Simulated assay, not measured.
Amino acid sequence: MQAKKDRAFLWMVVPAFILFFAFHTFPVLQGVFFSFTDYKGYGSWDFTGLKNYFNVFQDTRALSAYGFTFQFAIIATILVNIISIFIALGLNANIKFRKTLRATYFIPYILSVLIVSYIFRFIFTHVLPDIGSSLGIEAISTNILGNPDLAWIGIVILAVWQAAAFNTLLYLAGLATIDQQVYEAASIDGANAWQTFWKVTFPLVAPFFTINMVVAMKNFLMAFDQIVGLTGGGPGTSTESISLLIYTSGLGGGQFAYQSANAVIYFIVIVVISVFQLRVLERKEAK
């Protein structure tokens, strides 16, 4: 009987493993292999060793894309966590329609990123400039997506607006684990709202803060759809992320092997940043 159960579980696992290997692991290994060649995505190829990897560090366009991606990811990660934790605190309070508001705040996360990006592009391109012109507000009377120095702000606004839903949900889960008696004790000791948050609430939700910081940073470093929908990497290449550069140049620019090397480097960068975040934030939790 036990043997039949084991075979049943095996037949459930094997198809999933085959599909995962065929559509994920094998393409990854194939990309790593071709990163050591001069393959253009078609035709013949020759081995070039580490040439592609060295060239990435000398490529001004790639370095610019790394700079933009890091700037965007750091700012967006900080903002989304600040906004999410305070939204979670508000939704966790004893207010009317609390469950309805929680469901409403989660809606942005389930919407298509690309569709929402096109909607935001229309808002930044037409709606806000029209409102700014009508009210005489110069700051919003022009399309920021057409300004190389300001276009990244629109991408941050969209990314934070949509990502805040998931982060808020995690913070709500963390707040649900806190015993209300802790707050009662803090109130008896005379702690004000800020002291209660900083000395009681935040230390108790620190593990959830760690998860949110790592996941948010990873997701923002891999930003793609928001940029495609809002700016397409423009004006020029001012908002071109690493993911977008790898996609456009690797698949449509005849740089398959070169961008494969770039992708491998970027994967290592993301892993290093994630591990570093975990180590630092987990030490903070222990204190």
Rank of each mutant, 00 (worst) to 15 (best):
N52C: 03
F36P: 02
Y39W: 15
S35D: 05
F21T: 13
F47P: 01
L29I: 12
D46M: 09
F17M: 11
L50N: 08
T37A: 01
G49D: 00
T37P: 04
G43M: 06
F21W: 10
G43T: 08
F26Y: 15
H24C: 13
Y42K: 14
T25I: 15
A22G: 10
P27I: 08
G43Y: 06
K51Y: 09
H24A: 14
K40D: 08
Y53C: 00
Y42M: 14
L50Y: 10
F26W: 15
G43S: 07
F21R: 04
F23P: 00
T37M: 05
G31N: 12
T48R: 13
D38T: 02
H24D: 11
F20D: 00
F20H: 06
K40C: 05
W45D: 01
W45A: 11
F23W: 10
K40T: 14
G49E: 04
F47K: 07
N52Q: 06
D46C: 04
A22T: 12
P15G: 05
T37N: 00
D46V: 05
F20M: 13
V28Q: 04
K51S: 14
A16K: 04
G43P: 03
L19G: 06
S35G: 07
T48F: 03
P27H: 06
F21E: 03
F21D: 07
D38E: 08
P15R: 01
G31E: 07
L50W: 13
L50M: 14
F54P: 01
A22P: 04
K51H: 12
F54R: 08
D38R: 09
T48W: 04
W45N: 06
F54N: 06
G41E: 03
Y53D: 00
T25N: 05
K51V: 09
V28S: 02
P15K: 08
L19V: 13
V32M: 09
F17T: 09
H24Q: 13
L29H: 05
G41I: 09
F20I: 08
G31F: 01
A22M: 12
F26V: 15
G31L: 10
Y42E: 12
D46A: 10
V28M: 14
V28I: 15
T37F: 02
Y53S: 00
T25W: 10
P15I: 07
L29K: 02
P15F: 07
I18E: 08
F26D: 06
